[in-house]
Design a protein around this nucleic acid. Sequence first.
RNA 1: GGGAGCAUAGCUCAGUUGGUUAGAGCACUUGCCUUACAAGCAAGGGGUCAUAGGUUCGAGUCCUAUUGCUCCCACCA
Length: 808
Amino acid sequence: MLDKKYDFKTAEKKWQEYWQQNGTYKFDKDSKKPIYSIDTPPPTVNGKIHIGHIFSYSQAEFIARYKRMMGYNVFYPFGFDDNGLPTELLVEKERGLKAYTVSREEFSKMCMETVDKYEKSFKDLFISVGNSADWSLAYHTVSPDCQKSSQMSFLDLYKKGKVYYAEAPALWCTKCATAIAQSELESEEKESTFNYLKFYIEGSDDYVEIATTRPELLCACDCIFINPKDEKNAHLLGKKVRVPLYNFYVPVMSDDKVDLDKGTGVVMCCTFGDQTDTQWFKKYNLELKVAIDDLGRMTAIAGKYEGMKTKEARAAIIEDLKAEDLLIKQDPISHQVSVHERCGTEMEIKLKKQWFIKTLENKEEWIKKGNEVEWHPSFMKARYMDWVENLMMDWCISRQKYFGVPFPVWYCKDCGEIIVAGEDELPVNPLTTNPKHACPKCGSKNYIPESDIMDTWATSSITPQINTKWNVDDEFYKKMMPMTLRPNAHDIIRTWDFYTIVKSFYHSNCLPWKNVMISGFIMASQGQKISKSKSNSKSDPIDLINTHSADVVRYWTATGSLGRDIIFNEDKFKIGARLTNKIFNASKFVWLFLENYKPKKNTKLKPMDKWILSKFNEMRERFISYFEKYEVGLAMQELENYFWNFCDNYIELVKVRLYNPDIYGEDAKESGQYACYHVLLEMLKMFGIYLPHITEEVYQNTFKDTVGAPSIHNIELTALPVEIDKDLIKKGDEVCDIVSQIRGYKTDNKLSQKTKLTKATITSNNTEFFKSVEDDVKAVSSAQDIEYLEGNTAVEIAGFIVEEKESK
RNA sequence: GGGAGCAUAGCUCAGUUGGUUAGAGCACUUGCCUUACAAGCAAGGGGUCAUAGGUUCGAGUCCUAUUGCUCCCACCA
């Protein structure tokens, strides 16, 4: 028996504990069922989980529940990405310190404490929203096991020649003081100024005009470029020009990368102002002039501006240029600037020794792999392709940071040889451990440990390998790879999805997974995304769960279609609350008639009972076909529509039979019970995907005794044993239509729905069918007499019987 | 500059391969305490499907162009 009211506050906790204790969602390693595996995104530990995470994770979670219900052995691990820069930034912010002000050991300890705290709260939150991950499979990327896998990955790439150590221009964040990768850039619209400067031609009073937004780089100027087709300036070729303020001379050269229409059509090349400079630096073997240090301050070559931050230096230099009459004019411009996604600092380029993974040399392969993966929705593939095609640099994986996976690498102090650890030594921290062998090249035993750590993506890009026990359990790895599904939001296609494809190809020449499911973002308002770092999350998940229930929050996450951003809208919670309430009430009511009922296989079904069963199977097919396309929201809509029809039309119609077997017969009751029993049970299973708590509450108090399974979430969905009879469905729908018209008559006449009617004349082309369901129509409409006419659907009411109200 | 998505009722969205009078929910109006549910039920009003062409017996759906919104990428002299 169900309680009178459903109290989500006690029920949700109760069932969450029940599922954990019973291992309801455990992956069964020995099962013969087909496996469905999910490479769950390990959330980055860099702040609180916001509603966007709940949205995105729920959509994938629906798939896990759906697949379990469809008879799959679902492998659904969870992880945390807790190493690297994001964690460091969080710790620095929380403790109000900079990593380099304390010892490396001390800082790592702080990071571990913070990570433990957050991971516990992340886990609690995901459990409290009813997430059905198998927590026994959980991993975290800074753990020794993951570090070992990550270093193993590095060694494998090293052996295969896919990772290299080189001095090459790398993107640099002066705030975080580390190299970063192309994928970590974001563009931001910024106001700036085009400064038109005079570069005097050597041996002449004439000058050439050059426009620059970065006059602070004048000291790093190597040469100036014109376009080979530039006739106006062609005479400058071979000559030298004087760099303003610094008064050294640089040559004029030509290159077709110069855009005639930009600025003055003449460019100064500095090491380094932008990507083009790096290409020219290589192509023309230019001199390296470093104007900016690791923390964004001007170096000695800047002369009197040394020590200033770049922005200060720029202002000072402009003043001096004006004073010396070297500034012709200034034009304000607004342009897209690359900034570091984690801190918003404008990117610089620095030449330093870094480790790089080769990504440029296999573009065709990345494209091929991208085509082999199925993208849901399909148009998201374009983002991946777009990214691959526009790759400019190999993937820089070294970070000049402290808390992360160390490189298993030392350098020989005497000859510079790279010494890598053996696989049996992993995980290894070169800062605290020496290599087992002397330098293979010169025999020296003096080493310099690599103090950099790896990019956090270098580890999270092997989550399929971590999940499937690569190099730990070969048999399992072979059985599980490729995994079935990678779900994530569209912002990390270019990082997580791309890098994972790269790694799987290099390691095992295979796909990491067969499907990618891309979810959209929750927008705070038009164009404003909710994110952890920007903390405009007015919609805290914990508060939402406490006020609306986990089921209702989950319901909300199922609205909208796959891959699309949606604006946070509280109205949807109201609808979800209405639905859960209705499911509870409908179940409670229907169960009144099912308490001691055992379904019989050969029950003779009345037409309208067959109708609702047949309609169920029809809905079930659409539901499945949406799910197969990963359209979890549209699937739910199908179910929801069916459910409301079940309540508003079918229950209303059948309840009179169920109440009064003395009038309508035991057979009529049993037929109704049969339909109610099966339809309700199947609907509960399906709703269980979205609303796991309330459906469990209903199941445990009703069907469990007859069905036997320990949880509603352990039962497979079945088709009901009736044909999908389109003709019957149409006729049954017509009955509903007529009933609705009769209700309309009562409404128009301001009558209560229970008002008795003297006679209803039903016109239909299916009068035979109407006659077969006459008892039901009479019962639901309170019509005392029914007459039939052939023709297009219509109904006419002769009149009604006014009953005197009983006074209470 | 390259690419993607979207445009349907006041709002949020469905609308499968082209096929009768374009659907739902919310909001709104009106009525109803009906032997589950008033946190409920019933009924109702409301749309030239962004615009302009085209293909077709037939277009919300396919094609072309235009407009607007959003996003991704590139450009950062």
